[in-house]
């Protein structure tokens, strides 16, 4: 292929590497050494993840987590530019400022839909293993160049601004990757099997309504613990969905699937484990309370969860 996912990871690594160099030389940060090393290690795992043996990547991740645990990751003091300065710059570009931001989703969409299957000289243009990701990466490159040209910004300025944002996200930037990793270890250790055995033991036989309630609540709760509805579905479907709902009550698997995944998503809305959705945005938006987004989402999640339980019960009992 011409553009591979690895190239996008290398680009991500270069951005983080640039940030780490700025941090290492920043005297305003009292922990510039450990903070800089944290981002340096992270950039290496992004760039060379496929070349370095996994054991060493594992060790590097553990070192990063140790830096977090030891309080070695500290934000630098960024001098926020005054609103007046930004206002002056704003007047120069005005509405055109949105162009690079809008380019990202638009180009990603065009790229993944139109260029997805394109081959040039027998080679796929975009990595077929993850077309969307490559398209997003390329869209960002075009948007970065556009933004630099419009704002007369240098690559150095782009990295400096990235560093400001990256530091405001802080350790939360690692969490999504760590959680997915946890899921893999759980699977290898057989956690899913144990849970489904336990659920099977306590399930009240014969009561369709209770089974539906436990199934949907189980999806939501398991998702809250794991931070990921994808991990919850195989466990709950194997433990309850197939043996009870489908085999015993003759439920339609398509209904079960659609509704149970949404029940899981209700859990996603209520857990800090879904860091990408709930914790990272709180950091990005400078919220004082890291759980503020979750608190806002809980009422909607609970209403929708109840709706899912009722809908599933009605559909199964009516045998639609």
């Amino acid at each position: 292929m011409i553009f591979s996912v690895e190239m996008i990871y290398i680009l991500m690594g270069i951005i983080v590497l640039g940030c780490s160099i700025y941090i290492l030389t920043d005297r305003t940060n009292s922990r510039r050494l450990t903070t800089g090393i944290f981002y340096l290690i992270y950039s290496i795992t992004l760039m060379f993840g496929n070349l370095i043996p996994p054991f060493y990547i594992g060790l590097m991740v553990i070192v990063m987590v140790l830096i977090i645990a030891g309080g070695g990751l500290r934000k630098s003091d960024h001098i926020e530019e005054s609103i007046e300065v930004k206002e002056q710059r704003r007047q120069r570009l005005g509405g055109r400022l949105f162009i690079p931001a809008i380019l990202i989703p638009v180009l990603t969409l065009i790229g993944s839909k139109l260029l997805g299957g394109v081959t040039i000289g027998g080679r796929a243009l975009l990595d077929p293993s993850n077309v969307t990701m490559v398209a997003l990466g390329l869209a960002c490159i075009i948007a970065i160049v556009t933004a630099m040209a419009m704002t007369r910004g240098t690559p150095g300025a782009a990295v400096k601004e990235s560093r400001r944002l990256l530091e405001s996200i802080g350790w939360a930037v690692l969490l999504p990757q760590l959680l997915a990793t946890l899921g893999t270890i759980y699977t290898n250790a057989g956690v899913g099997k144990v849970v489904s055995n336990g659920v099977t033991a306590i399930i009240p036989e014969g009561s369709l309504f209770l089974i539906v309630v436990i199934f949907c609540l189980g999806m939501a709760l398991f998702t809250m613990i794991m931070g990921n509805a994808f991990a919850a579905f195989p466990v709950m479907a194997a433990g309850i969905g197939i043996p009870f709902l489908i085999t015993q009550f003759d439920a339609n698997p398509n209904h079960i699937a659609a509704i149970s995944m949404f029940a899981g998503y209700c859990g996603t809305l209520m857990t800090p484990m879904a860091a990408n959705f709930n914790i990272v945005p709180a950091a990005l938006l400078d919220l004082k309370d890291k759980n503020h987004v979750i608190k806002v989402q809980v009422p909607t999640a609970l209403f929708v969860l109840v709706f899912n339980i009722i809908l599933m019960y009605v559909l199964v009992s009516l045998k639609v």
């Binding site: 120069r92 400022l97 931001a101 944002l165």
Partner: peptide, 15 residues
Amino acid sequence: IVTLPVIGLLEKNGL
């Protein structure tokens, strides 16, 4: 992470 340079630059310029 790939989106950060774009957003950072635009924010600096009054987005």
